[in-house]
């Protein structure tokens, strides 16, 4: 059953230079207990899409169109109070920088107290503290750190605490927005391992956002690739383990596809992501695409089903 369904989501930013379409017609679904990975370069709109779907992105961002359905409930029509209750009880988020996510003048314990009190006001102080200690143990942090201020803890510890906080009300969906970008590889591995264990035990779904495609290949069940605010390919992880189909996806694997037998290895995709103020016409990837044809610069490719659950937005590849 679908937990979260995002349909044709459009997110605009109001800037002094005009309206910037950060997310353009993005659709995806997450089923219960599933892990959907969203991958893309910075500025591709992956975080914006997730945070707007959760409706925690304030102005100058706004949702200009589309639908967000969480278990039959229309998120875009929720009142402020419904939204407040939906947050954290059903869906929670781990943000990129754990240091900035915690209030620097409150101790860790108060973050737990505030969160639990907001949703379960009937719980006594003792019960809340007991629960906070249990949650910290879940992510291998000694409960004595409940009395610490955020700046007194290491980056890895803070990130674990934020994860514990995200699981405080046993949500059904956990959004992880580049949760390990600021950490070193060893800590990253440990944290992800722990989250996956917890996911198996508690059964929540994960929307995992990152620029690291190889990381997602290890544990995601579904995968979507975003480029300049648009979804270019989405499907089961197996498709991507085989290298993906869209030229941009393949570029992310740090090699260009073979053309007319000539072999050329690239460190990365040539060129840089387009300016979102005036994106190129047609397929937004065409100026950097090795396969680009005339049509690509004129006509915008739509996302099309090319196999079971596998969708692609590419004129060239969907013809082949």
């Amino acid at each position: 059953m679908n937990l979260l369904r995002v349909e044709n989501l459009k997110v605009d930013y109001l800037t002094p230079d005009g309206v910037l379409q950060a997310v353009d017609n993005v659709s995806f679904e997450i089923k219960q207990g599933e892990i959907l990975g969203l991958v893309g370069e910075s500025g591709s709109g992956k975080s914006t899409a997730a945070m707007a779907a959760m409706r925690i992105l304030g102005p100058p961002a706004l949702i200009a169109g589309g639908r967000v359905i969480f278990k039959e409930r229309d998120v875009l029509k929720m009142t402020a109070e419904e939204l407040r209750r939906w947050h954290w009880q059903d869906v929670s988020i781990v943000m990129q920088s754990a240091l900035n996510a915690l209030n620097p003048v409150l101790v860790i314990q108060e973050h737990f107290v505030d969160t639990i009190n907001a949703h379960c006001p009937e719980q006594s102080n003792g019960e809340v503290l007991e629960r906070a200690a249990k949650l910290l143990k879940m992510v291998d942090i000694d409960p004595r750190y409940l009395k610490s201020y955020p700046h007194e803890l290491s980056g890895g510890m803070r990130q674990r605490i934020v994860i514990a906080l995200a699981l405080a009300l046993y949500p059904q969906l956990l959004i992880m927005d580049e949760p390990t970008t600021a950490l070193d590889v060893v800590v990253e591995r440990e944290i992800i391992k722990r989250v996956l264990q917890l996911q198996k035990e508690m059964g929540f779904a994960i929307l995992f956002i990152t620029h690291d495609l190889s990381l997602l290949l290890e544990f995601a069940t579904q995968l979507g690739v975003l480029y300049a605010g648009r979804l270019v390919e989405i499907g089961p992880v197996e498709v991507f383990r085989r290298g993906g189909v869209h030229p941009y996806t393949q570029g992310l694997f740090q090699a260009v596809p073979q053309l007319h037998g000539a072999r050329e290895a690239f460190k990365s995709i040539p060129g840089s992501p387009p300016s979102m103020k005036n994106p190129p016409p047609g397929c937004r990837f065409h100026p950097r695409c090795p396969l680009a044809e005339e049509r690509c610069s004129k006509e915008q490719p739509e996302l099309k089903q090319i196999a079971q659950e596998h969708q692609l937005a590419c004129h060239v590849r969907s013809r082949d």
Binding site: M51, M54, I56, L57, G58, R84, R85, W86, H87, W88, Q89, S92, I93, M95, S97, N100, A101, L102, N103, P104, D114, T115, A118, H119, L165
Partner: peptide
């Protein structure tokens, strides 16, 4: 971020 995060926590 910590304001967004506080709001996100409901």
């Amino acid at each position: 971020d910590y304001i967004t995060y506080a709001r996100a926590r409901g």
